[in-house]
Nucleic acid binder design. Sequence first.
DNA 1: AAACAAGGCAACCGCACTTTC
DNA 2: TGAAAGTGCGGTTGCCTTGTT
Length: 341
Amino acid sequence: MGRIPCCEKDNVKRGQWTPEEDNKLSSYIAQHGTRNWRLIPKNAGLQRCGKSCRLRWTNYLRPDLKHGEFSELEEHTIVKLHSVVGNRWSLIAAQLPGRTDNDVKNHWNTKLKKKLSGMGIDPVTHKPFSHLMAEIATTLAPPQVAHLTEAALGCFKDEMLHLLTKKRVDFQIENSNGGPLHGLSSIPGRNLSTTYSTRRQSDEDDTVQKIKLSVSRAMQDPNTLAPEPNTVPPNKSWGMVSFGEASNTFAEAYNTFPTSVSGFQYDPPSCGNEGDGSPWNQSICTGSTCTGADRMGLHGRGGEEDGDEAEGGKGTRKQSDVFNSDCVLWDLTDDLMNPVA
DNA sequence: AAACAAGGCAACCGCACTTTC
DNA sequence: TGAAAGTGCGGTTGCCTTGTT
């Protein structure tokens, strides 16, 4: 059957919007609102697809949008929320007034992801690369580990070499204990002193050697999975995200997954969650197959929960379930970027 | 100064979901 | 009840700008 296209693509203009088009759209919406996007371009005298108009309005023309640089606080919020909900950009953007999901997504892809990688943090799982390697090593038999390690090292090495050989890396870290997340922590009041500059081949080799050493240690003794001195201690996290007030926390999970970076508490019974609740599972959350969000009910599909929600789309309008309900408590004031000694 | 590469961002695409009829 | 329409979302693409050689 298939859907009919939202517009006749032959007759619509595409590409960059001109100031004149912006004016037409803005003034039309100011007068008539945003009902029925399909009719808006026709009535506004625009040769644009309705969908294109909607995107232009929501991502650029809306008067309540911010257009400047992301602040430190905004970056912290993005990283923090991403560690919990993954690529749910609309969810994350909803916590950043004036920012769109597109803004957040672009900022993540162009800046934050690289910052995390540069600090040795896997931007997908929010775990240190070395710990990921160690975990892989403990879950596989040695022959498999050997192959996988080589493959993974290839990937990590490429990424690291790319970062390390850049002329300048602007990541500033605290010189005191060098936690993995310090690169984002140019927070007011923080002591920032060390700046990485040009790295040489010996540094690159050293990094790779460290990873190899970590893997080989783990292969010899799974108990060595305890966090390294410069990583987040198991009783600390990037900030506490509490899913309910019951006593069922991740303390036990931390014993099982001591290398997790993003830790949080949640209450499976009252939230209707399932699974083992490990930070590992919660943090493996990418794109539309966001398992962590699914576990936490973030996708919110189906309209049975909230009759007032009259809009369409995927689950993000259920963000109230995540951010505002009694079941969830977000503490964004915690300094998630700075591990505590 | 020119050519090339990389980064950044706006816009597009296709899918999933809800609403309407 | 099911099809059509409307909308939101995440992923991807393409173009412009900036930096490097």
